[in-house]
């Protein structure tokens, strides 16, 4: 690849488009980043849709339809490196809330003619179907982490993405602890950082956008919430949100179902 720019593809499964927008939102870096690659397939930004194979594929969104399943298998074949971006592609996303419900019922609630709708019973991460080379967390992802990951893979090095908790960033920023000082149910102790402790910096408890950190002690945090006066239902809701189907959060929410 000495003279040829690496070919980039950006795909969308079931999602809100926010994570791929993060690339366009990197205004200061956009022309440099997209200038460094060949933007071969990025339908949201370009009419020029070139055929694969591609060097790097970024996938946004979860797998929720039979069509998504076919697509992701094809995408894996087309991409040398496959990177999922965001909570949907990495953990099933907010739409994984359906995984505990009857999807047929859901279809009836939203659509007058459910027979037109083709959908899977569960919203699943990409890794449930194909091998993924790197999973970038967040709802939405942090654009600077995305640039770091692209940069790392383009230069054949490991991405520098911390896997410790939001708490560490809070301490580094000198934030007052919203859990101990304000009694807010804060998911920071079990959530991977990436947002630079955003919510606690706004006097709000973390609500888990980046999913469970490595070896998250979820049961201890659940116990703490209960000691603070929160109900089992509150604990279940706290763990069952934007990364509801990530294993550690899934188990904890299930442990607090009635």
């Amino acid at each position: 690849m000495a003279n040829k720019k690496p070919r980039l593809a950006v795909y969308k499964m079931s999602s809100c488009d926010g994570c791929q927008l993060s690339l366009l939102d990197a205004e200061d870096e956009l022309l440099d980043v997209l200038g460094g690659v060949e933007m071969a397939y990025f339908p949201e930004a370009s009419s020029k849709m070139q055929k694969g194979p591609y060097d790097i594929g970024l996938v946004e969104g979860s797998i929720t339809t039979p069509r998504n399943v076919e697509e992701i298998r094809q995408i894996r074949k087309e991409c040398k490196i496959l990177i999922t971006i965001g909570a949907c592609a990495t953990a099933g996303g907010i739409q994984a809330l359906r995984n505990w419900k009857d999807t047929k019922e859901f279809t009836k609630i939203v659509y007058a003619s459910p027979e037109y709708i083709s959908t899977l019973d569960r919203s699943m991460p990409v890794s449930a179907f194909v091998h993924v080379d790197f999973e970038l967390r967040g709802c939405p992802i942090n654009k600077y982490q995305l640039i770091e990951v692209l940069n790392a893979f383009l230069n054949s090095r490991k991405p520098n993405i911390p896997t410790y908790s939001v708490c560490i960033d809070c301490k580094l920023k000198g934030n007052i602890c919203v859990l101990t000082a304000h009694g807010s149910p804060c998911m920071g102790p079990v959530t991977q950082t990436g947002c630079n402790a955003l919510c606690p910096s706004y006097d709000r408890g973390c609500f888990g956008c980046y999913g469970p950190m490595d070896s998250a002690n979820t049961s201890s945090l659940a116990k703490q919430f209960k000691q603070m006066g929160f109900s089992k239902f509150d604990v279940m809701i706290a763990f069952r949100s934007y990364n509801a189907y990530a294993e550690a959060f899934r188990k904890e929410s299930e442990a607090n179902e009635k």
Binding site: M13, T64, N68, R98, K101, F106, I109, V110, I117
Partner: peptide
């Protein structure tokens, strides 16, 4: 053909 995501349904009970 954007896949349905059922927001109106899973807001129930939240």
């Amino acid at each position: 053909f954007e896949p349905p995501r059922f927001f109106e349904a899973f807001l129930r009970g939240r």
